[in-house]
Design a protein around this nucleic acid. Structure first.
Length: 215
DNA sequence: CAGTGACA
DNA sequence: AGTC
């Protein structure tokens, strides 16, 4: 008898969602303690902080970044910035373990050569969510988006190229890596409110790492 | 309660 | 990337 109907190999497996999107189940599990240590080290240099949308609303997710570019939002708009606006210093370097994970996952999903220069770190406490949006602040849409989920699970919504297009729900669990690019690069996406709970490594939170090629 | 569009 |  297999242990699980969903992981017959007992390890990571790839679910092809469409031509340019794939869910790599458990891809980050083997390395999770190391990855989290690297994330914590980044957050000591660039602490999580709340951001405001251009409309002046508070985002429910707390955010930081590492790499050459960090994603920031304020009343002036959404953009990538080379310096952390809180400290005025450059963002922490992207740890090799994180870059390697993103590159490996992208290659497995069909995007060999992915060279991320930005890693957005989003922290979701129970109740936090992300409305449907497109990632369109990057200069070059030829590179995919690589999203790593750690801690509490969340329901991810993957839509189409128009906001009103039908979405489908993907449960993202600790260690899952979702990759979308090519014809799927501009798909709308979002995250339903994170449900209360506790994860052995992270407690009552979900951390999402999103790797992009900003410039 | 999920989905959609208007407005910011 | 939010709220109504």
């Amino acid at each position: 008898m297999s242990d699980s109907l969903f992981a017959p190999s007992g390890g990571p497996w790839i679910e092809r969602l469409s031509a340019g999107a794939a869910l790599l189940h458990g891809r980050a599990c083997a390395n999770d303690v190391r990855l989290l240590a690297e994330v914590e080290a980044v957050l000591e240099q660039a602490p999580l902080r709340g951001m405001e949308t251009p409309g002046g609303q508070s985002m429910s997710v707390a955010t930081s970044s590492c790499g050459d570019w960090g994603w920031v939002s304020d009343r002036r708009g959404y953009r990538y910035a080379a310096a952390d606006p809180v400290s005025g210093h450059p963002w922490p370097a992207m740890p090799d373990a994180l870059r390697d994970l993103a590159r490996g996952a992208a290659a497995e999903a069909g995007f060999a050569g992915f060279d991320p220069d930005a890693c957005l770190i989003n922290c979701y406490l129970p109740g936090a969510r992300m409305g449907l949006h497109q990632d369109k602040d990057e200069r070059d849409f030829s590179a995919p988006i690589v999203s790593v989920s750690l801690g509490l699970p969340a329901a991810f919504l993957l839509g189409g190229l128009r906001r009103a297009d039908k979405t489908f729900r993907i449960l993202l669990r600790h260690g899952d890596v979702l990759v979308w690019g090519g014809p799927d690069r501009m798909r709308y996406h979002g995250v339903r409110p994170v449900q209360p709970g506790s994860h052995p490594l992270l407690g009552a939170r979900r951390i999402n790492l999103t790797f992009r090629k900003a410039r």
